[in-house]
C-alpha cells in the first residue's frame, strides 16, 4: 500500500484495521520508515501548535477590536458629539422608516451579486464549441444556469478541477439556490486555488442571502482587511449591513 496514504490516514484517524496492521508491520520491519513516521507525527503536532497560536491571536485581535469599539463609545471626546450624533441617528431612523425602504439582506445580495464571468474558457464569437468543457462554459455564458450546473458537475467528476465547484456555485446563486451554493463554496475553500479569494466573496454573499449574518460579516471583515479580490466592495457592504 502507498506509504504516504498510510501515514496520512493514520494522522487523520481514517485507518482500517487491515491498514493499521500493515502500518504496524512496516514500523517493526523498516527502521527508515519508522524514523520518517516519527518525524511526520511530530510535524503534525507542530502544525497543530502553529494553528493554536494563530487561533489564539485571532481571538485576541477580535477582543481588542471589541474593546476599541467600546472605548470609542464611552470616551469623553465622543460624548461631546454624542448628542449631535444621537440627533442625526434619530433623524436617519425616522427618515429610513418613513421615506426609505429598509435595505434587506435580499436587496443587498441582489445589489452585489453578479455571476462571476467565465475566465477559464472564454468563448469567442464564431468559435466552435468543440469540447464538453467549452460547452459547459458556453451554457454558463448564455445564462442557461441549470444546464451549466449539469455540465459542470459532469466535468468536475471527470477532471476534479476545483474551479468547477466555484462556477457551479455561481450558477446556483444565479438561480437563487443559496443552500447548494454554500455547500459547494465551502468545499471549494479547501482547495485554495486561483479562485480562492473570489470564492470567499461569493460565500460571504451567499451567507448574507441565507440570513447567516455572523458568518457573512466575519468573512467580509477578513476580505476588507486584505488587499485581495473585492476588498473595497466588502467594506462598503459591511457598512450597509451595519
Amino acid at each position: 500500500m502507498d506509504r504516504d496514504l498510510l501515514i496520512h490516514k493514520y494522522l487523520h484517524q481514517t485507518l482500517t484495521n487491515e491498514e493499521q496492521m500493515a502500518l504496524n508491520e512496516l514500523l517493526e520491519s523498516d527502521p527508515e520508515f519508522k524514523a520518517n513516521f516519527e518525524l511526520e507525527k511530530d510535524l503534525h503536532t507542530v502544525l497543530i501548535d502553529v494553528g493554536k497560536e494563530s487561533l489564539k491571536q485571532q481571538f485576541v485581535d477580535f477582543e481588542n477590536q471589541e474593546q476599541e469599539q467600546q472605548f470609542e463609545k464611552t470616551s469623553p471626546s465622543f460624548l461631546r458629539y454624542a448628542i449631535a450624533a444621537c440627533l442625526i441617528i434619530g433623524l436617519s431612523i425616522f427618515a429610513s422608516k418613513y421615506f426609505i425602504n429598509t435595505t434587506s439582506t435580499d436587496d443587498l445580495f441582489a445589489e452585489n451579486f453578479v455571476a462571476y464571468r467565465n475566465i477559464v474558457l472564454p468563448i469567442e464569437r464564431g468559435e466552435g464549441i468543440d469540447s464538453p468543457e467549452k460547452e459547459a462554459f458556453f451554457k454558463y455564458e448564455m445564462k442557461e444556469y441549470q444546464a451549466a450546473i449539469n455540465a459542470f458537475e459532469t466535468e468536475f467528476s471527470r477532471t476534479q478541477q476545483p474551479y468547477y465547484l466555484f462556477y457551479t456555485a455561481n450558477a446556483y446563486l444565479a438561480l437563487g439556490d443559496t443552500k447548494n451554493a454554500i455547500t459547494l463554496l465551502e468545499k471549494h475553500q479547501r482547495f485554495k486555488d486561483d479562485f480562492y479569494e473570489k470564492s470567499r466573496w461569493y460565500l460571504a454573499l451567499a451567507y448574507l442571502k441565507e440570513k447567516n449574518q455572523n458568518k457573512s460579516v466575519m468573512l467580509l471583515e477578513e476580505i476588507s482587511a486584505s488587499d485581495g479580490y473585492h476588498h473595497k466592495e466588502a467594506s462598503v457592504l459591511l457598512n450597509a449591513i451595519r
Binding site: H8, L47, G51, Q160, P162, F191, K192
Partner: peptide
Amino acid sequence: ILELFYLNGLKIKEIMIAAN
C-alpha cells in the same frame, strides 16, 4: 504543501489540483 497534507488533511491528488 506540508500544511495542506499534514494539517488540513488534503490528499496527494487534492494538493496537486489545489496547488497547481
